[in-house]
């Protein structure tokens, strides 16, 4: 799978000590539109243009569970901070419960994060934008519940979303009901919804890179059969396994690893 030209990101480690999962930038050299795959995370983004006369716009996204299209002009640029899944409340506060698949733009975004309201003025430098975004997101204490949810998120990623909620609750040392409640209030999605996203992203990688058949990939990803994988790809990507588009904007959902990774 090829990432689109112009997309790059830097993953921050160690993971759980921070709110920021990654800082990413993207640039488009011509007008068009691009498919964004859902990753269940919240981002705070400033969208601007190489033409400094264009006033930058603030965007706050809620945890996405559906693919969506973004349209853009030539030389549109983005600089974004992706938060760790258990830190969505930093951007949305109590509104996180209603943030699923929501995108707040400009005034709406500034109402969510008034601290960044003055940031979007014509001519502001990318370096200042990045610094302001990271500074806003970092340095916030995480509640004990947030830590426990963070551990569950970690287990979900290590298992490719294949642990049951029962197993996750046993490992977290609480009831499934309590885990679901903690998870939903911290991530903004149900455990099951988040697990399905992790499983989908892993399946996507297996289809593209594992070197086997589609049914091999479905089996390894933990789907009951190939039809279940196809359904998941339709739902989360809008495509079928035999026809995965090139140039997907596909953030590295693992949140792992060694610093800079360029497309």
């Amino acid at each position: 799978m090829r990432l689109p030209d112009g997309y790059q990101e830097r993953i921050y480690t160690p993971q759980q000590a921070r709110s920021v999962e990654a800082v990413w930038r993207h640039e488009e050299s011509q007008a068009g539109r691009s498919l964004i795959l859902p990753d269940g995370r919240c981002d705070v983004i400033v969208r601007y243009n190489a033409d400094r006369a264009v006033v930058p716009r603030l965007v706050v996204t809620g945890p996405a569970t559906r693919p969506y299209w973004v349209t853009f002009e030539a030389w549109d640029r983005w600089i974004g901070v992706r938060l760790r899944p258990e830190r969505g409340g930093v951007l949305w506060g109590d509104a996180l419960a209603r943030a699923k698949d929501q995108v707040a733009l400009e005034d709406e975004a500034e109402a969510l994060v008034p601290e960044l309201a003055g940031l979007c003025v014509a001519g502001v430098s990318p370096a200042d934008l990045q610094q302001a975004l990271v500074r806003f997101v970092e340095g916030r204490a995480l509640s004990p519940e947030g830590h426990r949810v963070g551990e569950t998120v970690r287990r979900l990623h290590l298992t490719g979303g294949r642990f049951s909620v029962t197993e996750l609750a046993a490992r977290a040392g609480c009831s499934t009901r309590h885990l679901n409640r903690m998870f939903a209030s911290t991530v903004g999605l149900s455990v099951k919804a988040y697990a399905s996203l992790v499983q989908f992203h892993r399946a996507l990688r297996l289809v593209c890179r594992a070197g086997g058949s589609l049914s091999d990939a479905a089996f390894e990803a933990g789907y009951a059969d190939q039809a279940h994988m196809t359904r998941a790809m339709r739902r989360f990507g809008g495509f079928v396994p035999s026809d995965i588009p090139e140039g997907l904007i596909r953030p590295d959902v693992s949140g792992g690893l060694w610093g800079n990774r360029t497309a």
Partner: peptide, 12 residues
């Protein structure tokens, strides 16, 4: 944490 980028998964 490095496993996911290689598409691996396991019970930790």
């Amino acid at each position: 944490e490095v496993i996911e980028l290689d598409g691996l998964a396991f019970a930790p």
